[in-house]
Every structure is written in structure tokens, then in C-alpha cells.
């Protein structure tokens, strides 16, 4: 398998955004919502829909931004761009928020805007909308981050000409921890 270190990579964890091994933004003291909003403002993402996203989508969206913001997908047709993503907790944070809204029958107001974020491939959808990606995509859930499997799967998509470039990686969010690591698999 190709050396994975050569793919462009963005990692977000523990209050730090790291691009290709270089820290570009750090604010370790803030809780996640404030940290991610801080990054959104600092790097002028300027995308009103961002505020309606759940935390998992915000995390994925910001990570994808740093890999795709400089026209890295220019020259590819929308259907030539693939997305392979995974995590371990699916949408647990939003699932819990949603179940709280249906626990009391006397105060029963299920929210459609919360429910829509209870599928992990919604973050793939948000990224596809922003960057006009129409190619193959798949979302896996596994207890452990299996980097080799995800990269191998994406490379196979390229080798079989299912896609010409692929956004690949791991985006997980729980109340205790968060971790995003995305690669741009381009050969």
C-alpha cells in the first residue's frame, strides 16, 4: 500500500487543528461548541447553514474545509469525487438529545431539525452539498479507527475507476471526546 503520510491530511482533536503535521489553530481551553465556532470565525468559513448543523457535522465540515478550500477538487467532474468516512459512535450525541425530546409524553415535541442529524451520513451529505460532490460514498461504523481499511478501500475505488479522487477518514463525536482526521486520497 502507498505511504499514507503523503496524502494531504487534516486532523482536529483536543482543541487543535493540524494540517499535514503542522498546527494551524489551537484553543485547548474551550469546550467543543466554542472551539469549533472560533475556528469557523477565524478562518472565515462564511456558510450560514453551518450554524444549523449538529456538532458532528460541524466537526466534519471544518476538517473538510482545510482539505478542499483551495480548489483541490477543480478539474474533477462531480461524479468522479468519492467520499469514504467512518466513526465509532454514529450520531450518539444527537441521538441522546433527540431521545430527551420524546421521553415526556406531556411535553412531546420531537424536533425534525434534530432528527435529521441522527444519521451519520448526513455529514457526508453536508460536505457533498458544499463542494458539489456527486460520486460514490459510503459511511462505515466500527469500534476502532481502522485507517488502513479506509485508505485501502478508497485506493481501490481509484484503481477500479469508480472515483478519481476521494475524501477519506474518521469523524467521531461524543460528550467526552472528539476526533476528526480526513485525507484526500488522490492517487
Amino acid at each position: 500500500m502507498k505511504q499514507t503520510t503523503t496524502y494531504p491530511c487534516c486532523e482536529i482533536k483536543a482543541g487543535t487543528i493540524n494540517i499535514n503535521g503542522r498546527v494551524i489553530y489551537e484553543n485547548t481551553a474551550l469546550p467543543f461548541p466554542k472551539f469549533i465556532k472560533g475556528a469557523y470565525k477565524e478562518f472565515e468559513l462564511n456558510y450560514p447553514k453551518f450554524h444549523k448543523m449538529d456538532r458532528l457535522c460541524k466537526l466534519a465540515f471544518v476538517a473538510a474545509h482545510f482539505l478542499l478550500k483551495d480548489g483541490q477538487l477543480d478539474g474533477y467532474a462531480p461524479e468522479e469525487i468519492g467520499v469514504v468516512m467512518a466513526n465509532s459512535n454514529s450520531t450518539l450525541h444527537t441521538d441522546s438529545k433527540y431521545t430527551d425530546s420524546i421521553k415526556d409524553r406531556d411535553n412531546y415535541f420531537p424536533s425534525p431539525a434534530v432528527f435529521v442529524y441522527t444519521l451519520p451520513n448526513i455529514m457526508v451529505g453536508e460536505i457533498c452539498i458544499k463542494y458539489n460532490i456527486k460520486g460514490e460514498s459510503v459511511f462505515f461504523v466500527s469500534n476502532q479507527f481502522d485507517k488502513e481499511m479506509l485508505l485501502e478501500y478508497s485506493q481501490d475505488m481509484l484503481q477500479t475507476e469508480t472515483a478519481k479522487i476521494c475524501l477519506t477518514g474518521w469523524v467521531d463525536y461524543t460528550d467526552e471526546d472528539y476526533h476528526a482526521i480526513l485525507y484526500l486520497v488522490n492517487e
Partner: peptide, 17 residues
């Protein structure tokens, strides 16, 4: 505001709640 169809459903919830 750039509201969409999900927001319309949310407004229905708001009127009820």
C-alpha cells in the same frame, strides 16, 4: 434567513409547543 423545508416543519412544532 435562507430557511428551508425542515425549518418549515420546525415552525409547525413551534406553533404547537
Amino acid at each position: 434567513l435562507g430557511l428551508d423545508s425542515i425549518d418549515a416543519l420546525e415552525l409547525i412544532v413551534l406553533l404547537d409547543k
